[in-house]
Design a protein around this nucleic acid. Structure first.
Lengths: 189, 189
DNA sequence: GACAGTCGTTCGGTTTGACGAACACCACAG
DNA sequence: CTGTGGTGTTCGTCAAACCGAACGACTGTC
C-alpha cells in the first residue's frame, strides 16, 4: 500500500498524531474518549501509538466523539504567508471575454476548498456547467452589481451582498455594471 | 457503534455508495481500481456491497487511486441557497469601534471554515489574538486600503489584493482609508 | 501507610477484514 | 460451438483489529 513517499510521515502516523492532538485539545483523557466513542481504550491506545490500520467505523466513532470532522484526522495542516496583488496573474486563472477568474488559494489534497477573485464586464453573462456533486459556492460582491446564483433563480447582488448556492447545478454570474468584482469560495465538501 | 440515527444511511452505506459513484465517475472497472489501488478486488467488491468495516489504509489507497480526497468518501454532501444583504445583521457579528465583522457562512460540525465580511474605519487598527493552532486566514480587500497580516509584518492591501497568513499568531487589520471593506476566510484545518 | 481513583499500557481470546483462487456471467473473435 | 478476455461475485485461509481484563504508575484522601 505504498502511500508513504519516504519523506512523509505516513498515513497512520498522521492519524496517530492528529488523534492525540485533538484529544488533548478537547481536554479528554484516553479512557474518557474511549468510553464516549464506544471503543476499547486498548484499541485507542494502540492507534495513538501508531500501531496498525484502524477500521473506518472506529475512527469515525472517535472523530464524532471528539466533535471534529473525520477529515481532520487524515489531512495534516499547513501554514504560510502569501500575498497576491490585484493585477498579478496567479497559479491558475481562466479568462473569457470580459471575465477573469484568479485562483487565490486551494487546499490539498486535490483542492477541497478554492478561493477565487473574479472580475467581469457587463453584458457578457458567465454560465458555468455543474460541478461535482456536493460542491457549494459562496459569493461576496466587492464592487459593481451582478446577477449570481443558480441559473434558474439568480439573485441580484450589490457591493457587500452575499449569496451561497449548490454548485452541482448550472449557475451564472452576470455583471450588471462596470468594474464588477467578487470573491468566490468554492467548496468541494 | 451507534452512529446511525435511524433515518440516516449509516457510515459504511455512505462509503459504499460514494465509492461506487466515484469509481463509475472515473470510468474505472472494479478490477482496474482494485489493481491500481493495490487492493484485492474481492475486498473492493465487498466494500462496495456495503459489507463490514474497511481499514483506513484500504480506503485511503482507494481514494488516492481514484484521485479524490479521502473525505469525499465519508462526508456526504449538503446544499442550500442563501442570500445576505450588505446591511443585514446575520447569524453572528462582532462590532467594536469602527469595526464590524459579519459571519456569512460556517461549515458544520464545529466550523472548520468561516466566511466573514468586514468593514473598518481608518485610525482604529484591529489587533486579533492568536487563534487555535493550524488556523489559516485569507483576506481579499474589496474596497479602500488596509494593512493586514501577521502583527510583526503586515502587508498593505489595495482593492483586489489578497493575502493569506497563519492565524495562530497575533494578526492585525488596520484600515487606511474610508469605506474599507474586505472578505475574510478563516480555516480551522 | 492503606485505600480509592485516576492515568495509559500490555496480554490472551474472539471477531473480522484482506487476500487469492475459483466461480458464473457476458461479449466477442475464431 | 469453443476459446479468450473482460466483468463482478463468492469461498476458505490467515493475519490482524477489536475487545475485556489485568497490570504498573501516579495522585490524592482519610
Amino acid at each position: 500500500m505504498g502511500n508513504s513517499p519516504a519523506g512523509e510521515p505516513g498515513l497512520i502516523a498522521v492519524i496517530a498524531a492528529a488523534l492525540r492532538r485533538e484529544r488533548e485539545r478537547a481536554g479528554m483523557s484516553l479512557s474518557e474518549l474511549a468510553k464516549r466513542a464506544g471503543v476499547a481504550k486498548s484499541t485507542l491506545s494502540q492507534i495513538e501509538s501508531g500501531a496498525g490500520n484502524p477500521g473506518v467505523e472506529t475512527l469515525w466513532a472517535l472523530a464524532t466523539a471528539l466533535g471534529v470532522p473525520f477529515s481532520r484526522l487524515v489531512d495534516p495542516p499547513r501554514p504560510a504567508t502569501r500575498v497576491l496583488r490585484a493585477g498579478e496573474g496567479p497559479a491558475a486563472h481562466s479568462e473569457v471575454a470580459g471575465y477573469t477568474a484568479a485562483l487565490l488559494a486551494s487546499s490539498p489534497p486535490n483542492a477541497r476548498r478554492d478561493l477565487y477573485r473574479v472580475t467581469a464586464r457587463p453584458g457578457e453573462p458567465r454560465l458555468s456547467a455543474p460541478h461535482a456533486p456536493g460542491t457549494v459556492e459562496h459569493v461576496v460582491l466587492a464592487s459593481g452589481r451582478a446577477l449570481a446564483g443558480p441559473a434558474e433563480e439568480p439573485v441580484e447582488l450589490r457591493p457587500g451582498d452575499y449569496v451561497t448556492y449548490p454548485g452541482d447545478v448550472p449557475h451564472i454570474f452576470d455583471a450588471l455594471a462596470a468594474d464588477t468584482s467578487a470573491v468566490f469560495v468554492m467548496e468541494h465538501i
